[in-house]
Design a binder for these strands. Sequence first.
DNA 1: CGAATCGTTGAAAGCAGTCAACTAGGGTGG
DNA 2: CCACCCTAGTTGACTGCTTTCAACGATTCG
Lengths: 180, 180
Amino acid sequence: MTTSFYNLLEGVMRLYKLLPDGRRQIVGFALPGDFLGMTSSSRHNFSADAIGPVVVCRFSRAPFARFIDDKPHLLRRINELAVRELGQAQDHMVLLGRRSAEEKVATFLVGWRDRLAALGGKTTTVPLPMSRQDIADYLGLTIETVSRTFTKLDRDGVIEILPGGISLLDPARAEALAAA
Amino acid sequence: MTTSFYNLLEGVMRLYKLLPDGRRQIVGFALPGDFLGMTSSSRHNFSADAIGPVVVCRFSRAPFARFIDDKPHLLRRINELAVRELGQAQDHMVLLGRRSAEEKVATFLVGWRDRLAALGGKTTTVPLPMSRQDIADYLGLTIETVSRTFTKLDRDGVIEILPGGISLLDPARAEALAAA
DNA sequence: CGAATCGTTGAAAGCAGTCAACTAGGGTGG
DNA sequence: CCACCCTAGTTGACTGCTTTCAACGATTCG
């Protein structure tokens, strides 16, 4: 596995791991600006693929490592990035281990909105380029449970289901469900 | 939170996060040689405490950061550590999101045995210094489910429950359940 | 010897999973 | 143009794994 480092410039990617029997856990979604490839270096079946068209900036591993050696400043930056990702991973463990389906979905929607907002988008309408199966595999649920929970949040007036996304009708209530 | 870095020299610690309502997720156990404090720097309620007596080597954050700046070599080491932890975190996400209670417990026992073995211990008898509640909060289960699963594995001849630990009677079967 | 804590076990409930049918778009080819 | 199919998503009925509630046993400690 001669993987490389990537900088995602445009599009959305899913990062996941597979069990031998096919069960999948998506460990994260990547958005433009995200840095990929740190973790795939270590052993284990780690995969990433695009959701829709993407533009990436690819760095061969070895040359990149050499390049970094000369720039301790850059290494620090990489390190901060790894630590941030580690923190996000820990947050996600809390979600997977200790939250209900409704909390999971609400947390996902609010978090996804915030990430898109940070890239400079509107905050009420939230596009969801990934499939329900992707969301299910990210939240440790089944596709049916995700669908039912979306419907419930819609009926409750928290969100409105739109083609290709949702609208956060009641952000406060959604954030309450996501309360960390 | 002026936390510091720590190097655990002796003993066992639990690292966890709490939800506002008290739900707890243990994100990892630390053993001698483990490096703590990278993630607690970032915001969020992150806690760590000792399971039994511990000996740690403490580094104040600021001086340590300055010290590192002069040693790019050391920074690389730290970075590798962070990446390794990130990989473990991803493995644990798979466990929390996609595995059954029995698989979770078996995976935990095999993994814990391997970590102890790496520190130079026997491999058949596995001491478990943490409580059932700790194990439950690590695996995203309840204490009752953990207890029942232990009992089941015992009845099935996979393990033998001992005071303060277990014996891996059938490592092959346990590893099959933990199959990653 | 209680009192307290930890762990185990049982019975019942509930949340999410499974199985299956149905709907809605979207693309293709006749 | 429309019939057809294929995929994604929704919904329903039911199952079942894990949780919840509760009692009991074991060990420790004051």
